[in-house]
């Protein structure tokens, strides 16, 4: 029980945070967390040893939430879920930063705005959960390489948006 409790208290926050991004329905998130832990408890003998419990739990909660949402006909397939479910706002979309000029912010906002739910989930798993591309690929049923490419595309765009002021300046010079 002691172990069970430690696992719970170490991960409930992360499971909740991730679950909430997959569905805004808090009841479903809480029920799923409950189901996951009850399941884990009942099958504790059959659990295989894992060296990344966090990955195992997040992957599992994703499955549980998907099945619950599917039962309520909110998604018709895993593919559908993979590409549409994840919903998160970038802080930049809400807040005003004053350390960088507003114009740049607007550009970055626009770029981030165009990211799909799937793009966002990849970024979340990469930066917040620090999963490997291999793990992200398994979780979202895609090639690890493709996950990596999508991350790099966002980084490249971010760099471009940050530096394009210089380019604009050059452009203006040439025009003149």
């Amino acid at each position: 029980m002691e172990a069970f409790r430690s696992i719970y208290s170490a991960f409930v926050g992360k499971l909740y945070a991730y679950g909430h991004k997959l569905t805004p329905d808090i009841q479903i998130v809480e029920d799923s967390i409950q189901e996951l832990f009850l399941d884990m408890y009942t099958h504790r003998q059959n659990l295989s040893e894992t060296n990344n419990l966090e990955y195992y739990l997040l992957k599992a909660i994703r499955q549980v939430i998907f099945h619950r949402l599917k039962n309520e006909n909110r998604f018709y397939s895993m593919d559908d879920f993979n590409s549409k479910a994840f919903n998160v706002d970038f802080e930049i979309e809400k807040n005003n930063h004053d350390d960088i000029r507003q114009e740049k912010i607007e550009r970055i906002k626009k770029s981030l705005n165009s990211l799909t739910p799937k793009n966002r989930e990849i970024l979340y798993l990469k930066f917040y959960r620090r999963f490997s591309y291999q793990q992200i690929g398994e979780m979202l049923e895609m090639q690890p390489d493709s996950a990596k490419k999508q991350v790099y595309r966002v980084i490249a765009k971010l760099k471009e948006d940050l530096s394009s002021q210089l380019l604009q300046l050059l452009y203006l010079c040439f025009r003149a």
Binding site: V12, H20, L112, R120, F127
Partner: peptide, 16 residues
């Protein structure tokens, strides 16, 4: 990189 920060939802200790 922080420009990519995402908003988060925390479970309250109470709910936890």
């Amino acid at each position: 990189l922080q420009l990519l920060s995402m908003s988060d939802h925390r479970i309250s200790v109470e709910r936890g």
